[in-house]
């Protein structure tokens, strides 16, 4: 009994300094900075974008110090699981599939999925008109999953890339016929650039909740609901106090939150 009490005291004394250390440690957030306008690099090499600004606003709201860690998109969840960082704030959509391995905060934005193709392409039914064509998607993204499940069985060739920027390069070069991606990302990262001249958003809006979920949320390790709830509360807070709108207006001229 005495030993047990002693052990307990020992455990307690060891826990408390740890708890203090935990408080001072910065919150590490994973991000892929190749997804304009949500996250990209300035010519000086600094990360910037909607995700980055929202993240910093949330950290300020939660009164924690945040440290950004870069990682390619398909490595974000694995790195989160092995504790290279504590949260992922990188335009990651909340999906059933991902909820199996991570937990999410509530959404912080929701923008639709669209196809980008040569301007003037007539596209009534993508599944029919795209047969035999090449569609580029970012590996492990919700667009990849949708394209693999819906496009590929219809005879559309799905080509997977590590980053959306490489897809835009190959679309402009003519190696791809189309890309399925976030409409905002296509508009800002491609159509508004020189390379995107002559291309446009075509066809319908894809919004099947089964694939595209309710929007992008902040991913945390499975079971870390305390952190997810803190993010959810902070999102509500910055939406209420106008900070969210301030960041949104910097990048978009429409409501990106979606309802």
């Amino acid at each position: 009994m005495k030993t047990l009490a002693l052990l307990g005291a020992l455990a307690l004394s060891m826990l408390s300094p740890l708890a203090v250390a935990e408080e001072a440690k910065p919150l590490r957030i994973g991000i892929e900075a190749a997804y304009p306008p949500f996250a990209y690099k300035t010519p000086e090499g600094n990360i910037t974008g909607f995700d980055y600004d929202i993240g910093n606003a949330l950290c300020e709201e939660m009164q924690v110090k945040c440290q950004w860690i870069e990682q390619e998109f398909d490595g974000l969840i694995p790195a989160l699981k092995v504790r290279k960082f504590d949260a992922v704030l990188s335009s990651m959509n909340i999906t059933e599939e991902r909820l199996k391995s991570v937990d999410f905060s509530k959404k912080y934005y929701n923008s639709p999925a669209r196809l980008a193709m040569k301007a003037g392409t007539a596209l009534n039914d993508p599944l029919v008109d795209l047969k035999g064509k090449k569609v580029g998607v970012q590996r492990a993204s919700i667009y990849d999953r949708y394209a693999s499940d819906v496009f590929a069985p219809a005879g559309i060739e799905v080509v997977r890339y590590s980053s959306q920027n490489e897809i835009f390069l190959d679309l402009a070069a003519g190696r791809l016929d189309a890309t399925l991606a976030d409409a905002v990302n296509i508009d800002d990262g491609f159509l508004k650039t020189d390379a995107g001249k002559g291309y446009a958003l075509v066809g319908p809006t894809f919004s099947e909740a089964e694939y595209f979920g309710e929007g992008a949320g902040i991913a945390v390790r499975k079971g870390d609901t305390a952190l997810a709830d803190k993010f959810t509360a902070a999102i509500a807070a910055i939406r209420a106090n106008g900070k969210y709108k301030e960041v949104q207006d910097k990048y978009f001229d429409f409501d990106i939150y979606g309802d």
Binding site: I77, P78, K81, R139, D144, V159, R160, Y161
Partner: peptide, 18 residues
């Protein structure tokens, strides 16, 4: 460069199933 060789297969499996 988008080819599904052995490593490409591994990357696909890794990203689809984490």
């Amino acid at each position: 460069v988008t080819l599904i060789d052995i490593t490409g297969a591994a990357r696909t499996v890794s990203s689809q199933h984490y």
